[in-house]
Amino acid sequence: MAKTANSNPDEMSFLDHLEELRWHLIRSVVAVVIVACVAFMMKGFIFDTIIFGPKKMDFPTYQFFCKIGNIFGIDSEFCGDSLPFTIQSRKMAGQFSAHIWTSIWAGFIIAFPYVLWELWKFISPGLHANERKHSRGFILVASSLFFLGVLFGYYVVAPLSINFLGTYQVSKEVFNEIDIDSFIATVRTSVIACGIMFELPIIIYFLTKVGLVTPEILKKHRKIALVIILILAAVITPPEIYSQVLVAIPVLILYQVSIYISKIVLKREAKKEKANAK
């Protein structure tokens, strides 16, 4: 774990570790708040361009599926002029509250690499020099996977969910007038959930390092993992087969990559044990 100026990790007490962790958390929170303040001042861009982007039919995802439908001669619902629902705020402080919380979540997403860096500064002193060397690209890889998941959630999961749920009607008598909190929650859940799911290779790496996971275990339980992935895909997407498949495919690919990563970790551990035995 992290160390102070006058001691090494072996000499630090539990309270010393808690104090170190507290300061890393404080710096992380400060970074998120600073970025959130910037996002707060960029209200027009954050809401009109980012948050409400998937509500507009000129959104890239809708344009893509519309072109695919035209190629195959299919009348696509993605080719409409607008989505048949409105967004409303039914609380006095509804819009102000949405502005604040959206800014905070934007701050967390954008500051994610720095938060990871603070986490790495806390745990890296407790690793051996060889382990730190092999984990040198941790922040870059983890951040890249997270942002890749965020983009996937924003450009695939969120628009498919909004298009399906926003146009769904049980009766012509019922109009979809969606509360702003509900709309933002749909976008936020899609983005954050996919960002976290795309961290699967990193999670498997550390689980393998501590001996909780092996490639054999991952292969043996591949079918169970497939079921879990499909359930997760069903939770964060609308109840349509094609959207669930679109989400499940990249996660399955990441699962296979995780098996390969687990093999590499075990090979390195075996080499290290042989070197120590000599």
Rank of each mutant, 00 (worst) to 15 (best):
E173A: 14
L83E: 04
L207D: 01
I249T: 11
K67I: 14
S243L: 07
I46D: 02
T208Q: 03
G126A: 02
K172R: 13
E177A: 15
C79P: 07
S97G: 14
L151V: 05
G166L: 12
L25Y: 02
V115W: 04
L165M: 14
V235Q: 02
A36L: 08
G195M: 04
P84I: 12
L252P: 02
N163I: 05
T186W: 04
D48A: 15
I123P: 00
K267A: 11
K272M: 11
T186C: 05
V38H: 07
Q88E: 15
A158H: 04
D181G: 01
V38I: 14
F146R: 01
G94D: 06
T86I: 10
L232S: 08
W23Y: 09
R188H: 06
A98K: 02
E19A: 14
A233L: 07
V257M: 15
I229H: 02
T49M: 13
A129N: 12
N176H: 07
S89D: 05
T102P: 01
I34G: 00
V265C: 06
Y155R: 05
I71P: 01
Y154R: 01
A185V: 00
L83H: 01
E77W: 07
E131H: 10
A142G: 08
F96I: 13
W105P: 00
A193R: 01
F45C: 09
